Amino acid sequence: MAVKVLVVDDSSFFRRRVSEIINADPRLEVIGDAVNGKEAVEKARTLKPDVITMDIEMPVMDGITAVREIMKSNPTPILMFSSLTHEGARATLDALDAGALDFLPKKFEDIARNKDEAISLLQKRVAELARKRVFMRAPVRPSSPVAPSPAERPLTSSRTAVSSGSAATTTLSRPAPAQVLPAARFKATGKQYQLMAIGTSTGGPVALQKILTQLPGSFPYPIVLVQHMPATFTAAFAARLNNLCKIGVKEAEDGDILRPGTAYLAPGGKQMMLEGRPGNVRLRIIDGGDRMNYKPCVDVTFGSAAKVYHDKVLSMILTGMGADGRDGARMLKSAGATVWAQDEESCVVYGMPQAVAKAGISTEDLPLDRIAERILIEVGLA
């Protein structure tokens, strides 16, 4: 059965263009369209699509408000279309907070080297997001309740954490069973670390926010973050995380010296590498490279981390499409470092973590809700 798609945009030209691309894939079928957010909310309820594509700026009701309303009444995977501007980046991040799972630029030429590649990418994104609908509406599984973890309790810090909604909590929340048993406590491995590294793609902004906002300002190691994201988005995303987190978060710059308690986000369109020796490590930000599929690329950053820090890296691969990070994670594991992967149910797209898990590289597969708890126990802060 074809994936049913609702296309939402106030531009008749764009609705037609997106519908033609989607209908060209035999796996997909556009079952309706809407010209504003209010109509989108109504049609989401009556048509029950598997996936919704949503514009942000629309009359009557904007896309962000529509996402929030749809996630309350009829949780559905939503793909946002955004302009590649600073304001577009902020609005897109707001939409992800409201419950959208992914985004693409409205100008398809900004996301691909040619027309055919852009068409294929849109079709693949829609097909992948459709798989998430099963988990968004899955029945309660009382056999594996999770109690509030130590990481979810307030942590003392000189900076104030700001709570924020997320797609993960919106789409994956389940009614609590009558009796909630405490979740099994993780055990630290006893390994010593000097760096934490995280790689992610589709669904990553929400996942990173959920994890990083639970880390204390006294986190003892520097953190490098690789999120597949356009160049105009990474500065806005880093600023948002910095406002929400107790740790410091910044878009990485060439020559940055790694400091404990600070996370460095790889800039979009570039590659981030580490050089030096532990205690005096600098970041090199270099051209993305025409032959590289991902800019930034997790493999590049993880590979350089393995050369500098060897076995002293705590790394993890989070939600994302494709297999970026597998080769870099393999290099880390060969050096004796620790590699974890996000589990399937809590991923927006179980591609990158699956590639690491299937290759036997990750030692633990973790639900998003407990990754921060696992980190704090592993590094001796819980």
Rank of each mutant, 00 (worst) to 15 (best):
T92I: 12
I371L: 05
K246M: 11
S12N: 03
K115M: 09
L28Y: 06
A167V: 13
S83R: 13
K191M: 13
D254L: 11
N114R: 12
N243Q: 08
T156G: 05
Y309H: 01
K124T: 15
V206Q: 13
E275N: 11
E373W: 10
L93I: 07
D256N: 09
T76W: 00
I375P: 07
G303R: 07
Q209E: 12
D311P: 04
L79F: 11
F81Y: 13
L47R: 12
L274W: 11
E344T: 09
L368T: 07
G203Y: 04
P145F: 02
R370P: 02
G288S: 12
A236M: 13
I223G: 01
G63S: 08
V162T: 13
A231P: 14
V140E: 14
A235V: 13
D62M: 07
F302V: 00
M136Y: 07
R259Y: 01
L241S: 06
Q271Y: 07
N280G: 12
A161M: 14
G99Y: 10
R137M: 03
Y264D: 02
G248Q: 10
D33K: 00
S173C: 11
G165P: 14
F135R: 09
D10F: 11
K246L: 13
K38Y: 08
L172W: 05
A266W: 05
I52P: 05
D10M: 09
A207P: 07
I52W: 03
